[in-house]
Amino acid sequence: MLSYIARRLLGVIPVMLVVGIFVFSLLHLAPGDPAAIIAGDNATEANVARIRASLGLDRPLLEQFGSWGWATLRGDLGVSMFSNIAVTKLVEQRIGPTVSLALTTMLVAISVAITLGILAAWKAGSLLDRAVMALAVTGFSVPVFVVGYILVYFFALQWHWLPVQGYVPLSEGLWPWLRHLVLPSIALGMAYVALIARITRASMLEVLAEDYIRTASAKGVATLPMLLRHALKNAAVPIVTVIGIGVALLMSGVVITESVFNIPGVGRLVVDAISRRDYPIIQGVMVIFAAVYVIINLAIDILYSFIDPRIRYS
């Protein structure tokens, strides 16, 4: 067990190293002087020099990577070119809305998707099954912002049930917080639900065809315990894996959802940074998102090895 965890932990190092090299070298991939690119088209000579010095671009490449990597490891993601505020500080100010949105979406999406997937597999070929599969294909096909605007148009602008946009922190009450998250979560969760419902159905179908399931139902095990305890538990590996991989999908979606609903989160921070070419922000958020993705997947792997011993020994 311990050696499995240690092995998985060590596996994080090369992945994050690749992420680091990638994020770092992006700036140097661009043709010409990176400092001039960041400064923009009508920058003064002094401005370019200031940027070059502040990013350390006048030093050898390996040394730059070393000091950037070391600083990043210690949690120093540099300073915004535009506002001169530390990137970590800016992210800290914006993390609340993003975490709220991502967590509510994940919770709701996973429970809805697994339920739908189980029902579809249980009644395979039925109208319900076809409806779930149709929903899944649609969920994959309609972009986050289109779902978002359709929801806003009907639920906010036409019927006035929910707010059009914005975010209210949890400290101002559970209901106002939740009200502002309903539409963004649905828009963001569509593709995630589709992904998980599909894999749940496929994985359950495979397990439900096994002999021991037939034995269980022949023995007279009731439907619900049969589906959950006998089938779902054994169908869980691919489902849990896809939940982890889907986090990447969710993260890309968060950036767009925050723009649609005007939520002042980390996604908006990046989008605002694009037009200002505020490179340290883009770089920093990329590293943070990648780290979160890696940690979530690591946690899922380790958690799962507790439940299913077959994982540890394979």
């Binding site: 190293l17 690119i37 998102f289």
Partner: peptide
């Protein structure tokens, strides 16, 4: 495969944003 794991860890839209902002 380590290289691919690394690329997969970066959200695709952020990677694309960064490249477009730079190039």
């Amino acid at each position: 495969m380590r290289l691919m794991d690394g690329i997969m860890a970066i959200p695709s839209i952020l990677l694309a944003i960064a490249l477009v902002a730079l190039l």
